[in-house]
Design a protein around this nucleic acid. Structure first.
Lengths: 189, 189
DNA sequence: GTTAAATGTTGCGCTAGAGCAACATTTAAG
DNA sequence: CTTAAATGTTGCTCTAGCGCAACATTTAAC
């Protein structure tokens, strides 16, 4: 049940079994079905999620109503609507379960208590923030400076799994283009 | 000399004078002239900069050679090529001095030593990362979901100072459009 | 297996913004 | 103050990607 999380921590910190066992009590296991909505428009994101199995999608909608995906969390990754989780304000980013999934859930309060008292969790949060920043950064420069085709090629190189696990519709929202355009781009690859 | 930095820390942590004085020894003061280049393509960013006076610009160039600006650091803010600073790898983001500036400089090594040993600095770094993330996030969704005109309006509302202190050329690179388009958009405001 | 719904593809016209060139204005250097 | 360089503006043309509609294919529900 906590294997993947233990592996995640071991890869990043020098945590010992005792400390780890103390941590796990703050995580509860929850299952969601495919396409279930975990965070809705306007909700405040009060949890951080570790994906044991399945896949989460983090996205928003603009005022014309079309969706923009920011991030996919596959098994072995943490994911949360980070801005809302940090600020504890209503989220403009929503969370959807792309496949039926099993999640380890920790509340905002427990998470930040651990970050403030357990050095390993402090380091882990730092690491999460750093990686979130670095990834997001690449994405900004990608969106501004590259054509849709270049972005598609990048995604196929660096995240090929996404094409097996997400629909074209969802991938288009990640690339910031319409399904029509994605369909045409694929044809000219 | 350290007034602004002290103010910055006091606004974010409950640091006392003694601790603060111990911190300051790791910062050295450096002056740069207008348009001087602080970090060049391929350099590894080995410092974090606190702006005492003046203004820094953080930007990149894509393969067609045009510039994309990510962030402006005005007086009273920290700024660094965060991705390179975190990973200590060659930077694809560069730093330029927009005005003649006075900076407090701390090395990567000293900075992370302090983050690991001084709780206030640990919290500060967390705060820097959180804010960097939140800001970057808004920018992604803005770039993907909004028209150039909407982005311009947003900038004029939330960062009006930039228009006094940066050239149109530079502002255009921040909005992800050409100077031509910016010029036209201003005409139709 | 059948059938409806969801998802994916393609033709066609349209629009935001790019890119060039030519000119106007501002800034900075002597 | 003068003059060159940098910066900003505008007309014109061009293109990537949008958005509709119509059709094709896959998925899921009974």
């Amino acid at each position: 049940m906590y294997n993947l999380l233990y592996k995640y921590l071991l890869e990043r910190t020098a945590i010992n079994t005792d400390s780890f066992n103390r941590l796990t009590q703050y995580f509860t296991i929850v299952k969601y079905k495919k396409n279930e909505q975990i965070l809705r428009p306007g909700d405040i994101c009060r949890n951080n999620y570790f994906v044991n199995a399945g896949c989460l999608r983090f996205y928003t909608t603009n005022k014309e109503g079309y969706e923009l995906t920011r991030y996919f969390a596959f098994e072995g990754k943490f994911g949360t609507a980070l801005t809302s989780f940090i600020e504890q304000k209503p989220s403009f980013e929503y969370i959807q379960c792309l496949e039926s999934s099993e999640l380890l859930v920790i509340s905002h309060q427990d998470f930040f208590n651990l970050v403030n008292t357990v050095p390993e969790m402090n380091f882990l949060y730092r690491n999460i923030l750093e990686m979130a920043y670095v990834t997001t950064q690449r994405r900004i420069y990608g969106l501004q400076g590259e054509t849709a085709l270049e972005r598609l090629r990048w995604l196929m190189n660096y995240q090929p799994d996404i094409f097996k696990r997400a629909s074209s519709r969802v991938i288009a929202t990640y690339l910031g283009i319409t399904t029509y355009t994605l369909s045409r781009l694929k044809a000219e690859l």
